[in-house]
Amino acid sequence: MNQEVYKKIKALADKYADDLKHQVDLRVEEMKHDDTSHYLLYRVLGVTDEEGNLIDLYQNKGRFLYKYAGAFLEEAATICMKHKFPDSAKTKIPNTLGQRPKTFEIDCLVGTLAHEIKWRDATTDGDHITKEHTRVKVIQQKGYTPIRVMFYYPQRAQAIRIQETLETLYNGIGGKYYYGDTAWKYIKDFTGIDLLEILETIAMSRE
């Protein structure tokens, strides 16, 4: 295991864990003063006040957790890339095929390889496909190869269909689409860093 990269990702994990705890603690304190009159509807639907309170609490915690988990993993993958390719960087390019958005962001540009890094993508929004179609075409026209690296695949049927459409889109214009095990393998093969092993080691240290 590369100790230099491990230390960077461990420090990043510690920072995200502390920030997450702080945000959750603040929200839990705020919720103590929330209006709970909507619990009437919960009870009508057979959910007790206690259970309703837990549902609201974990829904709030979940929003923070998903946000922080995604941002952490995307940043950790970028650390691996920047270790192997110091000149790689987050890059914005103008949208040459439409007015909105004005620019598209490439998470990590390595030479002509334009990486989009996602921890997962569970969207079921059809507009997402349209925007992504435009994005990859703009990247291609710029002379770059669009590469999508998504570590966790969605589990719901409609979200899976959208990902299958995006995979066809990427492959159709000469790009690459990696997800699940192939995403972890791509990072390891491309950077020489076993990100999955690093994360498993950090997770074990929390136990």
Rank of each mutant, 00 (worst) to 15 (best):
D125C: 13
N171I: 05
T124Y: 06
F85D: 01
L41K: 12
L40K: 15
I198S: 02
D181L: 11
Y66F: 09
C80D: 04
I79V: 12
V136K: 02
T91V: 10
E4N: 13
A69W: 07
L26K: 13
I202R: 01
L41D: 14
T165K: 14
T130L: 09
E207Y: 13
G46C: 11
Y68A: 08
A17F: 05
T123M: 12
L169N: 13
Y68S: 05
I160N: 03
F190S: 04
K137P: 04
E74G: 08
Q140I: 03
K176M: 10
I106Q: 00
K10C: 06
Y16G: 01
T112Q: 07
F190R: 03
D194H: 11
D121C: 04
V110K: 15
K188H: 13
M150K: 14
L20E: 09
K15D: 08
D107M: 04
N53E: 15
R135V: 01
T165L: 14
Y144L: 09
V47E: 01
K8L: 10
Y179T: 06
E197N: 07
N53K: 14
D189L: 01
L40P: 01
T96L: 13
L199I: 15
K188R: 15
R100V: 10
I187S: 00
R63T: 10
V44L: 15
Y16I: 02
R135K: 14
K15G: 02
V47D: 01
V47W: 03
T134L: 07
L195T: 02
G70Y: 00
P101V: 09
T123S: 12
R27S: 03
M31P: 01
E75H: 14
G143D: 06
P86V: 04
K82F: 00
Q99R: 12
L109K: 00
K82S: 04
N95R: 06
V5G: 04
D56W: 10
H83R: 10
I202T: 00
Q3R: 15
V47M: 01
Y6H: 07
R135N: 04
K84I: 04
K61S: 07
L12W: 02
Q141R: 13
S88T: 07
Y66E: 15
Q99M: 11
R148V: 08
I160S: 00
G192A: 09
R27L: 11
T48R: 12
E30T: 08
T112I: 14
T91I: 05
D18Y: 02
R135W: 02
T96Q: 08
Q155D: 13
I79Q: 14
K21F: 02
D34P: 03
M150F: 05
D14L: 02
K118L: 05
I193T: 03
E50P: 01
A157N: 08
K21W: 05
A203T: 02
W119Q: 07
Y16E: 06
V47Q: 07
V110H: 00
D127P: 01
T78A: 10
D194V: 12
Y39W: 12
L12C: 05
L65K: 06
I160T: 06
M150Y: 06
R63Y: 05
Y178E: 05
D56L: 15
I93A: 03
A11I: 06
I173A: 04
G143W: 05
D25S: 11
T145F: 07
T130A: 10
D34L: 12
